[in-house]
Design a protein around this nucleic acid. Structure first.
Lengths: 359, 359
DNA sequence: TGTTAGCACTCTCGTCCTTTGACTGCTAAC
DNA sequence: GTTAGCAGTCAAAGGACGAGAGTGCTAACA
C-alpha cells in the first residue's frame, strides 16, 4: 500500500480517513459540509468537493447517484483499515470481561469456544463465529476413561489447549481398574501425539497393547469408535459456533429483512463458513473486505479474522462479520486483546508444564 | 371449551378450523371464496360470508378493515388449538433425527439441552428455548473429582438426568489418591441427595469428614466453592439456551425488522424468559396464545411449552416461540414426540439402575 | 496554482391523488 | 336457509409534483 502513500497528499489522506470514519459511525453518505465540520474548518466546501471528486476518481469513494454524498468503496475501506491498525482502546468493561473469561480458564475446549464467541460478539456488537480448524492437530497430554453408572463411559483427553471429551459405551463386565489401566497405557503410548496420530496409531498398536490384558481389546475398540465418531462429527459440521447473529439487524444495511436473511443463511451453512475461514491468516488479525471474501453472497460484507495458534498450528479461527461499514477499529482492538490473552494463556500453560513435569 | 361445542354448529366449526388452518399456512386473510375452495364447494360465497360474519360476531375472527378478509383472533386460535390436540404426523426425517439424538444419549446435561433446542428448532422452524429450572433438584448418583495436569480438577457429578461438571482449583501437593478417596466419601455421603442438599450439607459434614484425612478439608472447601459458583452462574442466567432465533424472520409478521428485534430482545433477556416459563405446566404440552403470555411485548406471539419432568419435578422447560399464526400442529407433534422420548429415556435409565444396583 | 463563491443541475424522498381490484354487507328473490 | 347481484369500502400500486440536499462547473480571486 505504499502506492497510496505516494499518490495521496496528506490532505487527501486525512479527508479520506475522516470520511470513512464518519460513514462508519453515521451510516449516511459523506458530504462536503460534513467533512468541513469534522476536520477541515479552514477549507471551503467547494475545495472539499474538489478533493472528494479526486478521491472518487482514484476509486476510494463512490456516489450512489449524482447529487448524493459519497460512500467508501472497498478500496476506501481497505485504505482505512491499513492506516488504522494502530492501538485503539476498547471499552474497559469489555476488556475486563474478556480477561475474566481467560482467567476462569474453562477446561473444556468446546465451552471455551462458546464463551469466546459470546464475549466477542457482546464486545463488538457484531455476529461472531468461532470455527475449530485443527481439532485433529491438538496434542494429547493425558487420557482418562471414566466409567459412569449407566452403560457409558467418558473419555477425557487433556490436550495442549483444553480438555475434549466424548462418551463411549461401557460394559458392566469390565472392572473399573481395567479402565484405569487402559487410560494409563493409552497416555503412555500417545502422550505428545496429536489426536489424529492417536486414532491412526491405535489400530496398529492394538494387538500389541492387548497382550497385556484381554479386556483391553474391547476397550480400545470402543475408544477408537468413539473418537472416530467425534472427529467425524466435528469435521462434518466443522465445529462452528456462531453467536449474536441477530446483531446484524441493528445495522441499517440490513433493515431489509431479505438482505439480512441472505447473510444469515450463509452464516448457518457450515460449508460456506468453512470456505471463508479455511485459509490460515499470516498476520494476527486480518480483514476481508467486500469482494475479498470468497463467498459471493457476502460481497457487501466485511469479515475480521484472528487465528488461535498453538505451536504454529492454527487450531481455531475467530471471525466477526458485519457490513462493509463495520467498526473496524473496535473489532481490531477486541481481537487484538483476545489474541494477547491467548499468548498469556499459552505462556502460563507452558510454565505449569515445566513446573509439574511429566506425570 | 364445551361452550364452543354448544354455540357453534358443526358447519361453523368446520369453517373456523379451515379458516385458521389456511391462515396458518398462507398468512393471508381468509376470504369467503378461499373457504369455498377449501372446504365448502357446495355452498355459495354469500352463505359463507354470512357464516364468517357470525363467527366474527362471536369473536373468533376479526377483520383488519372492512373489505378485507378475516384473520383469527386469539380466541380463534385457542379454539383451533383445543380441537387440534390430536395426533398429527411429523416429517419422518425429523422424527428420526430427534430419536437419534436420544439414542446417542449425550452424557452432559448441558450438551443435551443444547442439542434438544437445536433439533426442535430445526424440526419446527421456530426459535426454541430450553430453560433449566430445577438444576438444584437434580439427584446425585455419583461424584468424581478428576485432577488435571494443569492446576485444575474436574468435578463430575452423575445425576438422575445427565452428568454435570465444573472445574475447580487443584493443588500439586495433594496426591491423586486423596481426590479419589474424597470422591468416594462424597458419593457415599450425598448419594440420592439433591445438588442443593449437598451444597448445604457439605458445610455441616465438613469437620466430621475431614477427620479421616487432613487434606480433605482443602478439597472440600474447593468443591463447595466450585459448586456454589456453578449454581450461582446457572441460576443467574437461568441456564437458558436459545436456538434458531433467526427463524423468526422467516415469518411475514416479522418482515419489519423492528418488530423482530423487539421479540428477539425479549428472547435474549433471561429475566423475561424466566417469567414466561416459570410456572410448571399441568399437561404435557401447553400453548400460551397472545395475551395469555405474561410478558406484554409478546402479546402478538404464541408460545408452546413442554416440561421435562423427573420424579415429578420439572427439571427443564422447552419453549417454542412464534407469531400467533404459528404452526401449532407441527409444533405439538414435535413436542409430543420429544416428551415421549423423555419417558423412554427415563424408563431405560431406571431399568439400568436396577440391573446394576448401587455401586 | 490553489481556493472560493455562486449558480444551475440532478436526484431522492415525501406527499398527494387516482385508479384498480379484491373483498364485504346487504337486499331481494328463490 | 340459500343465493345472485349490486353497491360500498379500503389497501395497494402508480404517477405527479415540490422541496431539499447535494453536486459539478465556471469564473474570479490570492
Amino acid at each position: 500500500m505504499t502506492d497510496d502513500e505516494i499518490v495521496l497528499s496528506d490532505r487527501k489522506k486525512q479527508i479520506l480517513l475522516s470520511a470513512v470514519e464518519d460513514y462508519i459511525q453515521e451510516a449516511s453518505p459523506i458530504t462536503s459540509s460534513v467533512i468541513q465540520h469534522k476536520c477541515a474548518k479552514d477549507l471551503s466546501t467547494a475545495t472539499l468537493r474538489n478533493e472528494l471528486n479526486a478521491l472518487e476518481a482514484m476509486g476510494y469513494l463512490k456516489q450512489l447517484h449524482t447529487s448524493s454524498g459519497r460512500v467508501p468503496t472497498s478500496k476506501g475501506y481497505r485504505f482505512y483499515v491499513n492506516s488504522m491498525m494502530g492501538d485503539l482502546p476498547l471499552d474497559k468493561d469489555v476488556l475486563a470481561e474478556i480477561h475474566a473469561l481467560f482467567e476462569k480458564r474453562t477446561v473444556y475446549l468446546g465451552d471455551m469456544i462458546n464463551e469466546i464467541a459470546s464475549v466477542i460478539s457482546k464486545a463488538t456488537n457484531y455476529p461472531t463465529i468461532v470455527m475449530m480448524k485443527g481439532f485433529e492437530k491438538l496434542v494429547i497430554k493425558n487420557i482418562k476413561i471414566i466409567p459412569l453408572l449407566t452403560k457409558q463411559a467418558l473419555i477425557l483427553i487433556e490436550t495442549n489447549s483444553g480438555v475434549i471429551s466424548n462418551s463411549m459405551e461401557a460394559q458392566d463386565t469390565i472392572p473399573q481398574q481395567s479402565y484405569i489401566d487402559a487410560s494409563n497405557l493409552l497416555t503412555q503410548t500417545f502422550q505428545n501425539c496429536t489426536v489424529a496420530e492417536m486414532i491412526k496409531g491405535m489400530e496398529g498398536h492394538k494387538q500389541e497393547m492387548s497382550k497385556q490384558l484381554s479386556e483391553f481389546s474391547v476397550i480400545f475398540d470402543t475408544v477408537i469408535k468413539s473418537l472416530s465418531s467425534l472427529v467425524d462429527r466435528l469435521s462434518q459440521n466443522g465445529h462452528i459456533t456462531a453467536k449474536g447473529e441477530l446483531k446484524l439487524l441493528g445495522n441499517p444495511e440490513y433493515s431489509d429483512p431479505e438482505k439480512a436473511k441472505q447473510v444469515i443463511d450463509i452464516l448457518s451453512n457450515p460449508n460456506e463458513i468453512k470456505e471463508v475461514f479455511e485459509e490460515d491468516t499470516t498476520s494476527d488479525i486480518s480483514f476481508k473486505i467486500g469482494n475479498e471474501i470468497p463467498v459471493k453472497e457476502l460481497k457487501d460484507c466485511s469479515i475480521a479474522q484472528a487465528d488461535y495458534k498453538v505451536d504454529g498450528e492454527s487450531i481455531a479461527s475467530i471471525g466477526i462479520i458485519g457490513p462493509q461499514r463495520m467498526d473496524y477499529a473496535k473489532i481490531a482492538s477486541a481481537l487484538k486483546f483476545v489474541v494477547g490473552e491467548f499468548e498469556n494463556m499459552k505462556a502460563l500453560t507452558h510454565e505449569e508444564k515445566e513446573e509439574k513435569g511429566e506425570q
